[in-house]
Design a protein around this nucleic acid. Structure first.
Length: 553
RNA sequence: GGCCCGUUGGUCAAGCGGUUAAGACUCCGCCCUCUCACGGCGGCGACAAGGGUUCGAUUCCCUUACGGGUCACCA
């Protein structure tokens, strides 16, 4: 077989040689040990939390070594594309503070010296390498139809053989140049396949950055390099792109482990240096139906989509903080020792990555996020709530913006002190949390142990003694004194000692005041709440509560 | 089915031949306290099973079970 002639027949339009391409892509000049990593999604527009996690790990892997992290778009499957899919992904990951050094920035723009970073623009490059492979007798055209391939697979299954295009089943391997010419003249579609040099009795092994040594049989399949439309498969594009773009550390989901033998063989056949690999376990979820674990599913689980966290208002940094905790098992320990150090300063490494798939724990995220928000300043909280409300809760947004100083004073309650409150896990919690500041209560959850008459008496008396100009230290003693005057113990412990001597204790009294002002039995510091509400509103609310109590008679 | 990967409390996880088997989240109790939250203290709760190797296995080897992945002209 005249391979040279075959190559010319198959790729007459390809003039640029493999060598010319090699020379046009400079070797990267980076310090020893610097990792070049990438995130290479399909532009489906949907960013899965697992994808974000992979991007995050890749970015950390690069930037903890003065390396490069870039974004490449794998749009080799036209069927899955979506409008503005690239922009959506870029926004999805940069929103979380994951810095992209090179690659696609939008549908059309990119930065970096290794362009194009989108595979649909690289067709000629892949074909040049294919032409070279054909010349060397390492690839060949295959004219088998889908029906033929299916028939072969069925036969293999029936015979309990491994399915696939290999050995005696690789019919097109042995086509003569004349037959090929004839087929092409007749306009038969074809794919280009690798003539796999693999031996099924041999095994290959490689060091995975996370899983350790992995050993597998060699690849013997004549896998497709170029599809009928001339666009490469993932496998081939991976080899060419990561070689040309200088990727030295490939980080991807562990569903790729089983095709690693193909990739290693491809790098070998092409004469490329193989990159290191690290295969990440997928993020799992408890499956209520089966009780087992399963992958977070795009269809069943809203929290699979990165956009979900934005919608319900988890701060991006809080989500990142959580991702750190599942990425590196020593992160939480580090965080306890360094409560205020920026998370970027944590030294990420592969050794502390879990081999097994972690369950995505929304409860834990909630805890991480509460702690994160508790440390924010009032202004930061306000800005976070505002941005969220503007997009997802217009009514609440209007309320917030009517008087921004007032709104901020709500979020300032018990904030900035030694032990800040942890009431808010996500911005979506804030409308309910702040509700009574914007609307006087319509229903009152008064305690059951006091009579209506007693409660009315408390409120009427409290109205008389209340001084809005009291400082915090004077406020509660005033309630104590009043309690005592009305026949309540000034501290719970006195009441507990001699319950028959009192109508109740100061806690019962302040409970009545609290419910009158807010409608709720449980609130943050009452003094601060009344200060925020203002004197007039406070008095109005007491009056309203008194009327409500009277009406109930 | 073949080939891979995995399996320590409910969850996330330390551990790397000898430990009372850390810690975090959740849950429960107590303390603090005008409520709640925060915080403090304490509690419940685990090495998938069976064989080896060894003076000794959570740790090493084998088998089994279970879970996951993959076997496309999808990535």
């Amino acid at each position: 077989m005249d391979n040279k002639k075959l190559a010319e027949l198959l790729f007459p339009q390809i003039e640029q040689t493999k060598e010319e391409i090699e020379n046009s892509y400079k070797k990267r000049d980076l310090p020893q040990g610097a990792r070049v990593t990438r995130f290479a999604p399909s532009p489906t527009g949907f960013l899965h939390i697992g994808g974000l996690f992979a991007a995050f790990v890749s970015e950390r892997a690069a930037h903890t070594t003065d390396g490069v992290f870039y974004l490449r778009i794998e749009d080799t499957d036209k069927k899955r594309e979506v409008e503005n899919g690239v922009t959506g992904i870029v926004k999805g990951i940069t929103d979380f503070g994951i810095k992209i050094d090179e690659g696609m920035l939008s549908e059309t723009e990119s930065v970096g010296d290794y362009a194009p970073y989108i595979q649909s623009k690289r067709a000629k490059i892949y074909q040049s390498y294919c032409k070279d492979l054909v010349e060397k007798g390492l690839a060949y055209p295959c004219f088998c139809s889908a029906e033929e391939l299916n028939a072969v697979r069925e036969e293999q299954e029936k015979n309990k053989e491994n399915p696939g295009y290999y050995g005696k089943y690789a019919k097109c391997r042995d086509l003569t140049l004349e037959q090929i010419e004839e087929n092409i003249k007749n306009g038969m579609p074809y794919v280009l396949r690798l003539k796999s040099p693999g031996d099924e009795n041999k095994r290959i092994s490689f060091e995975d950055g996370i899983k350790g040594t992995i050993e597998m049989p060699e690849n013997i399949l004549d896998i497709v390099l170029l599809k009928t439309d001339g666009i490469p498969t993932y496998h081939f594009a991976h080899a060419i792109d990561d070689h040309l773009m200088g990727t030295n550390y490939v980080i991807r989901g562990d569903e790729w482990i089983s095709s690693a033998p193909i990739h290693l063989q491809l790098f070998d056949v092409l004469g490329f240096e193989t990159p290191s690999y690290a295969h990440i376990s997928p993020i799992m979820k408890e499956d209520e139906e089966t009780g087992g674990k399963r992958k977070l599913s795009k269809r069943k689980d809203p929290e699979a989509a990165v956009s979900y966290y934005h919608e319900v208002g988890y701060p991006n940094k809080a989500v990142l903080e959580y991702l750190y905790t599942i990425a590196n098992s020593n992160y939480e320990q580090w965080r306890m020792e360094n409560p205020d150090t920026p998370m970027e300063e944590f030294e990420f490494d592969f050794a502390h990555m879990s081999k097994a798939g972690a369950l995505f724990d929304l409860v834990k995220l909630t805890d991480v996020s509460k702690t994160y928000i508790s440390k924010l300043t009032t202004d930061e909280v306000f800005e976070g709530v505002k941005a969220w409300a503007e997009e997802y809760n217009k009514d609440f947004y209007e309320l917030l913006m009517k008087d921004t100083d007032y709104s901020k004073s709500i979020f300032a309650i018990e904030r900035g002190n030694e032990k800040p409150r942890k009431d808010i896990a996500k911005w979506e919690d804030t409308p309910a949390y702040t509700e009574y500041f914007f609307n006087a209560p319509e229903a009152y959850d008064f305690p059951e142990n006091l009579s209506k008459e007693d409660m009315i008496e408390i409120l009427q008396k409290y109205k008389k003694v209340y001084n809005h100009n009291d400082i915090a230290d004077d406020w509660f003693p005033r309630v104590r004194d009043m309690s005592e005057a009305l026949g309540y113990a000034k501290a719970p412990k006195f009441y507990k000692k001699n319950p028959e001597e009192f109508k109740g204790h100061v806690g019962d009294v302040s409970s009545v005041i609290r419910v009158a002002a807010t409608g709720r039995r449980n609130t943050p510091d009452l003094y601060q709440i009344l200060q925020v509400l203002g004197e007039k509103e406070t008095m109005d609310r007491f009056d309203r509560a008194i009327s409500a109590l009277k009406e109930e008679k």
